[in-house]
């Protein structure tokens, strides 16, 4: 599903990634484990084509991420580490925006938002502005955004940081559930 060959990334003079090779098959859950600065986030940013690699290639389902990034991005759901959200939108507005941009058909949008909100435990806060949500709920909104279009690949950058133990196990259950049919890559520095 994901094929990384001789990937490298340099910023000015420092090499963050050097000759990274890895392959993830469909239905696998892959964890990136490592200290800060190990290159976990950088790898994810390259797979999602936010950054371009300095060398090597990344293929998502056979599509090169630098050549046809629109197609490869459509197959990926991504939760960045800092969980950036549009603070002044309401949860529902935000999810609707995602559903629209992700190309979900108009008559399915309402139903899909309901499903996703239910899966991520957001039903009770769906009408609230995002800037009033607690850290745990924000994380869930981020996750809901990532799974909205039922992507084949889910990339989650430290999805459990800042959550309490209950929430961590909930999120893990959710990842496991999704990982049964999908390919999941996630990073963490706490196991």
């Amino acid at each position: 599903m994901i094929e990384i060959k001789n990937l490298s990334k340099r910023f000015a003079s420092t090499a963050v990634l050097e000759d990274l090779n890895l392959e993830v098959k469909k239905g696998e859950i892959l964890g990136f484990l490592g200290p800060n600065g190990a290159g976990k986030t950088t790898t994810m940013k390259i797979i999602t084509s936010f950054w371009a690699p300095s060398g090597g290639s990344v293929k998502v389902d056979g599509i090169d991420v630098t050549e046809d990034s629109q197609k490869s991005r459509a197959k990926i759901g991504y939760l960045p580490e800092t969980v950036p959200l549009y603070e002044d939108m309401r949860v529902y507005e935000y999810l609707k925006f995602i559903a629209e941009v992700r190309g979900i058909e108009k008559d399915r949008i309402k139903k899909r938002i309901k499903e996703v909100a239910h899966d991520c435990g957001l039903s009770s806060v769906i009408r609230k502005p995002i800037d009033e949500l607690s850290k745990g709920y924000r994380q869930r909104v981020g996750l809901a955004q990532a799974i909205m279009h039922e992507p084949e690949i889910l990339i989650l950058d430290e999805p459990t940081t800042g959550l309490d133990p209950n929430q961590i196990s909930e999120i893990r259950e959710l990842i496991k559930k999704i990982g049964k049919e999908k390919t999941v890559i996630f990073s963490t520095h706490i196991l």
Binding site: T48, F50, Q70, R73, I76, P80, P84, V101, R102, G103
Partner: peptide, 14 residues
Amino acid sequence: KSGTIEFLLTLPVS
């Protein structure tokens, strides 16, 4: 500043 650019530009949009 808020980092939403990372999320916006990893959507399938040019």
